[in-house]
Design a protein around this nucleic acid. Structure first.
Length: 803
RNA sequence: GCACGAGUGGCGGAAUUGGCAGACGCACCAGACUCAAAAUCUGGCGGGGGUGACUUCGUGAGGGUUCAAGUCCCUCCUCGUGCACCA
């Protein structure tokens, strides 16, 4: 009897050997494959089994590609700027740099337990001045190109984090980070002009091998729409009102207009009678938080007392103010066609404004309209020259007609807003700008980067809209790099997303102090072939990283426009009842004990076995016994096996071929949970065969090779036990023969009226006559009554329909 | 409100895309080994009926298409995710 399986011994042994002699080596000839994990925030809580799963998935995929003879770029790093470290500093008085370093060391140790083939020479940390030097450098390039600019406007403000937020960071009116209700605050902010890239960010989605869900979310976030701007004259005034509409075909049905209360003409349009009401409405709206405005969908509004002229029919239409019109989309003013828009219908009904139908429904005018007819198909009515035309086609032509009439133009609009880029917090990259009273904002010269984050006594956010850095007068007061006169540093810092928008570039050249990445290395190793991480970054990180990459492409740093060719979103591992693992819920499961008790290989397999990798799974510790049994069973089979002389009978060859086929196709389909069950199934088969005679060495070798990406230690050990000298990862990926997959005879089901009554073994290409004869024989007396139909689908089924 | 997912044994989940529902595993039950337990091995394991070969019902609910439906179509329920007055 061979020694029982001792996971600690085997795993430690190979870990040492792999460290001395890495299995993933760039010989200059191999093709590269870049498999990237979304790098973690080094939290003080450490890793739980959910983080582990993502890293196991990416490592399995990397090792599979390694065995297919690619050179693998598989790096790991730290997204280490951000609020938790700063909050920890506020509470405990420990500098964020210190707590961050501790956390990084701790998590690195935990990640190393996964035994992934990470190249730790490539490690990056966004808080390292040698790293954020280049984050600042990119900002400076954007500033030079006019893509980073300052603007004073009401921005999203989190009263709990005491900082401004980007649109992407506001989820249902709440702060993405802490969940507090977001308010508006008027602040002068640094903005990045992501809208200049809206079209490219949209159209290039087509080139990506990403989950449709994520592409759709980005498409909707960018929110491109086609329509027209239309000018409405204001009765008795010089100014005109311009609106944006996607339905210029309904122009004749516009019976009123609504302006956002923030519109620049809102107050001045008020007639003497309406003045008090208008001013009150504008004031009341300004008090509302964005959550209030979102939640209360009951329409409110006030009539200004002024009228506009519908340019199509010259009719006077009243101008109203209402907070359902958004100030920062389109022109902040809309034409209202209550007959064909739900919101306008609701408003018109409430305030008793006329409703004019301009598109016929089922060829007729509706007698009593109870809801808007929003279908864009039908014949135009009540529309002057346009009567009788098809609305769908007119919708496309109308912008040109309006343009010809000189009352508007064709336009597109986006929901995407520019990126509010400054944060009134300490623990982030300082924005490398000096404000000079004479020269205005001036970039810190590139040879003076990095502009390091100074140490402060007090990290506490001020809440005034100023960063804690503002109190550091020594640091703030400087001279203008342009004219040399006294000037002040920008005291806001960059958002957490800055460092993560380009880190994948830095890995491959992380020690370069001349460039953020050399052209040579970027061309050789990038872009990322496979990117693995949670879906929570679908619009935030993934949109920002695409934007920055496109910018770096434009200024010639990289020669590709999209950073991540393929994306895989792994599901979340939750605690019992689908509750997200968190320290406060007390349901966090640490991988450390499981690794100790069952070994890395078992945990790796179990992480995959819990469920489909793309779906959320509830964690249940008990199941890991199953994969542990599988591993010890395999160990015993290989250790006890004595090859009785290379039995290569067709049955043996076929089983082996089937094994390779099953595992390879399931792996290619990313069906990693069924890969594991496939291994179990085949091991059960082999164990059953082993009772009669020894399993042949070749089959065992192939089994172990296939298992290697999933359970690397035991596979490597058994591969050597089976007499191989080199590493299992150098031995290539086993091939299968498609032709051998087809059996000459197969078992098919025999049904009567669709119910299973027998099975028969039959030649796979048997004729109908032969199949039916066999089937009848198998059924015997069970086939009684009047057979009205006989169905035979070769290779599938025989079915008799009986009356 | 709109859009997209999902719903299968006690549990996690399979099902080559319309062709033998429940692979694989957990838990559980019985047996072997043991003084005993653990570990291991063997067998069983959706519900009802039958000593039995068998039989019947069964994939959230109801209806439909088909020789055949977990899979396709219609209506509805539940859960999840995204968007949420974007004109």
């Amino acid at each position: 009897m061979a020694a029982p399986y001792n996971h600690r011994e085997v795993e430690e042994k190979w870990r040492k050997i792999w460290e001395e002699k890495p299995v993933n080596v760039d010989d200059g000839k191999k093709q590269k494959y870049y498999c990237l994990d979304m790098f973690p925030y080094p939290s003080g809580n450490g890793l739980h089994v959910g983080h582990w799963r993502g890293y196991v998935i990416s490592d399995v995929w990397s090792r599979y590609k390694l065995m297919q003879d690619y050179f693998i770029i598989h790096p790991m790093g730290w997204d280490a700027f951000g609020l938790p470290a700063e909050n920890y500093a506020i509470k405990n008085g420990v500098h964020p740099a210190i707590s961050t370093e501790e956390n990084v060391n701790n998590i690195r140790k935990q990640i190393k337990q996964i035994a992934a083939i990470y190249d730790w020479d490539m490690e990056v940390n966004t808080t390292d001045p040698n790293y954020y030097k280049w984050t600042q450098w990119i900002f400076v390039q954007m500033f030079k190109k006019g893509l980073a600019y300052q603007k004073e406007m009401p921005i999203n403000w989190c009263p709990s984090c005491k900082t401004g937020l980007a649109n992407e960071e506001v989820v249902n009116g709440k702060c993405e980070r802490c969940g507090a209700d977001v308010t508006k605050k008027n602040l002068k902010q640094w903005m990045l002009k992501i809208t200049a890239y809206a079209d490219r960010l949209l159209s290039d989605l087509d080139t990506l091998d990403w989950p449709e869900k994520v592409k759709k979310m980005q498409t909707e976030w960018i929110g491109k729409s086609y329509g027209a701007e239309v000018d409405f004259a204001i009765d008795g005034r010089k100014e005109k009102l311009t609106v944006y509409t996607t339905r210029p075909d309904t122009l004749y049905g516009a019976t009123f207009m609504v302006l956002a209360p923030e519109h620049e003409l809102a107050a001045s349009l008020a007639s003497d009678e309406q003045k008090a009401a208008v001013e009150d409405y504008i004031y009341q709206t300004s008090l509302k938080s964005s959550v209030d405005r979102l939640q209360n969908k009951e329409k409110t509004g006030v009539f200004t007392g002024s009228y506009a002229i519908n340019p199509m029919n010259g009719k006077q239409i009243p101008i109203w103010l209402s907070d359902y019109v958004l100030a920062d989309y389109g022109t902040g003013a809309i034409m209202c066609v209550p007959a064909h828009d739900d919101r306008d219908f609701e408003f018109a009904t409430k305030f008793d404004i006329p409703i004019v139908q301009v598109i016929a429904k089922d060829g007729k005018e509706i007698e009593h309209m109870t809801e808007a007819y929003t279908d864009a198909s039908g014949t135009m009515i009540n529309s002057g020259d346009w009567n009788g035309r098809e609305s769908a086609e007119l919708k496309l032509e109308a912008p040109a007609i309006i343009e010809e009439m000189g009352v508007g133009k064709k336009t597109v609009n986006y929901k995407l807003r520019d990126w509010v880029f400054s944060r009134q917090r300490y623990w982030g990259e300082p924005i490398p700008i000096v404000h000079c009273p004479d020269c205005g904002p001036v970039a810190v010269p590139e040879d003076q980067l990095p502009l390091t984050l100074p140490e402060v006594e007090n990290y506490e956010p001020t809440g005034t809209g100023e960063s804690p850095l503002a109190a550091m007068t020594d640091w703030v007061n400087t001279t203008c790099p342009c004219c040399g006169k006294p000037a002040k540093r920008e005291t806001n810092t960059m958002p957490q997303w800055a460092g993560s928008s380009w880190y994948f570039l830095r890995y491959v050249d992380n020690k370069n102090d001349k460039e953020l990445v050399s052209k040579e290395k970027a061309d050789k190793y990038l872009p990322v072939d496979m990117y693995i991480g949670g879906v929570e970054h679908a619009v935030l990180h993934l949109l920002y990283a695409r934007f920055w990459t496109k910018f770096l492409y434009d200024i010639g740093v990289v020669s590709f426009e999209e950073p991540f060719t393929k994306l895989f979103n792994q599901g979340m591992i939750t605690g019992k009842n689908g509750i997200k693992m968190s320290k406060s819920k007390g349901n966090v499961i640490s991988p450390d004990d499981l690794v100790r008790d069952y070994g890395c290989d078992s945990l790796r397999l179990y992480e995959l076995f819990v469920g489909p990798p793309e779906l959320d799974s509830e964690w249940d510790d008990r199941g890991i016994d199953g994969v542990y049994r599988f591993i010890t069973k395999l160990w015993k089979l290989v250790m006890d096996h004595k090859d009785d002389g290379a039995d290569q009978s067709p049955a043996v060859v076929k089983e082996r071929n089937r094994l390779v086929y099953d595992i390879t196709t399931r792996l290619e389909n990313f069906s990693l949970n069924t890969v594991v069950s496939g291994f179990m199934e085949h091991l059960n088969n082999l164990s059953a065969m082993a009772k009669d005679k020894a399993v042949d060495t070749e089959t065992m070798k192939v089994f172990v090779q296939l298992l290697a990406p999933f359970a690397p230690h035991i596979s490597e050990e058994l591969y050597h036990v089976l007499g191989n000298e080199e590493s299992v990862f150098a031995g290539g990926w086993p091939a299968y023969d498609e032709k051998l997959m087809e059996d000459d005879t197969i078992e098919i089901a025999v049904q009567v009226n669709g119910k299973l009554r027998a099975t028969i073994n039959i030649a796979k290409d048997a004729t109908k006559e032969a199949a039916l004869a066999d089937a009848k024989e198998a059924l015997g007396a069970k086939l009684s009554g009047n057979v009205v139909k006989e169905i035979y689908v070769p290779g599938k089924i025989v079915n008799f329909v009986v009356k």
